[in-house]
C-alpha cells in the first residue's frame, strides 16, 4: 500500500500528515519549527511515520507547503493557498470559502467543487486582521493569547476598537484600560475589530457558504463567535484545523501520484 505525505512548514510549527490510497489520515505530527527548518521538516516526517507505524519506503510522494516549503526536502512544492483549499474541502465537502487567519498573514480563498482554488486574497503588509494583531493586543492586556477567546465570551459590555492600524489599535486598548474597562470587554472588541478586517478580505473573493476556517486562530472561540455574529452563518471548524494545510498537501500528493502514475522526479 502506498502512502502520501504533506509537510506544512509554518513560522512557528511544522505539521506533517500522512494519508493512504483511500485518503484516510493514517499519521500526523506537529513539531516546533525552530531555527533549522530543514532538519525540523525531516523530524516532523519521522515523527509522523513513527506515530502511525508507517514504513518510510511506502511513502510514494511528499509535498511541502507553507512559507518554508522551499527549505525542506520534498518531491514537489505547492503553496499553502492551494493546500488549505484542498484540505478544507476534504474535511467539509460543502466548503466554498476558506478563511485562514495565520500569524503573519490572512487568506481568504474561494474554492470550486473539487477543492480547486477559484480566487484568493491575502492581507497587505499591515498586520491588522492577522494573528499578530491578537498577539500584540494580548500583550497589551497582559493576558495569555489562549485565554483571549474564552475571556471575550464572558463580555457583558463590549468595547469598540475602531482603528485599523495595529499601533493605533494598541493605543486604543491602552486608553480603554486606563478608562477602567474590563479586559473581557476589550477582548470582545478586539475580536470584533479583526472580524471586520477579515470579512472585508472575504468579501473581496465573495463569501459563499459553507465557510470553513483553517489555521491555528480557528481554535480561538472568540474569533469564531465574532465572525459568525457578523456574517450570520455557522463556520465549519475541525479539530484538525491546525493540520489542514498539511492534509491538503498529502491529498494533492496522492492525487498527483495516482493521476500521473509517474515516479516523482
Amino acid at each position: 500500500m502506498s502512502h502520501f505525505a504533506g509537510v506544512d512548514i509554518g513560522s512557528l510549527a511544522i505539521k506533517c500528515v500522512i494519508v493512504n490510497d483511500a485518503m484516510d489520515i493514517v499519521a500526523k505530527a506537529v513539531v516546533p519549527t525552530g531555527a533549522r527548518v530543514a532538519q525540523a521538516g525531516e523530524a516532523a516526517l519521522r515523527a509522523a511515520l513513527e506515530s502511525g507505524g508507517v514504513d518510510p519506503v511506502s511513502i510514494a510522494l511528499t509535498i511541502a507547503t507553507g512559507y518554508g516549503r522551499k527549505r525542506v526536502a520534498a518531491d514537489a512544492r505547492v503553496t499553502e493557498i492551494t493546500c488549505h483549499a484542498r484540505g478544507a474541502v476534504h474535511l467539509f465537502p460543502g466548503t466554498r470559502t476558506v478563511l485562514d487567519i495565520g500569524g503573519q498573514d490572512t487568506k481568504a480563498i474561494r474554492v470550486g467543487a473539487k477543492g480547486e482554488v477559484a480566487n484568493f486574497a491575502m492581507n497587505d503588509k499591515c498586520a491588522a486582521g492577522t494573528g499578530r494583531f491578537l498577539e500584540v493586543m494580548a500583550r497589551a492586556l497582559e493576558v495569555d493569547l489562549e485565554d483571549l477567546g474564552p475571556l471575550s465570551r464572558e463580555s457583558t459590555k463590549p468595547q469598540t476598537i475602531s482603528s485599523f492600524c495595529t499601533v493605533f489599535g494598541e493605543s486604543e486598548v491602552v486608553s480603554h484600560i486606563a478608562d477602567g474597562a474590563e479586559i473581557k470587554d476589550i477582548a470582545r472588541g478586539l475580536h470584533a475589530a479583526i472580524a471586520q478586517r477579515v470579512i472585508g478580505l472575504l468579501k473581496r473573493v465573495g463569501i459563499e457558504a459553507e465557510l470553513t476556517m483553517s489555521g491555528g486562530v480557528a481554535r480561538n472561540v472568540g474569533m469564531r463567535d465574532a465572525i459568525e455574529r457578523e456574517l450570520g452563518l455557522t463556520l465549519n471548524v475541525s479539530d484538525e484545523s491546525q493540520i489542514i494545510g498539511a492534509l491538503g498537501a498529502a491529498l494533492i500528493a496522492r492525487q498527483r501520484y495516482l493521476n500521473t502514475g509517474e515516479e516523482p522526479r
Binding site: Y67, V78, I81, E116, M122, K125
Partner: peptide
C-alpha cells in the same frame, strides 16, 4: 520580505 509575494505568484500559477 518577498516571501509572501512569491507565495501569491505561485498560488496564482497553481490556479
Amino acid at each position: 520580505g518577498f516571501g509572501p509575494v512569491l507565495t501569491r505568484l505561485e498560488a496564482f500559477a497553481e490556479i
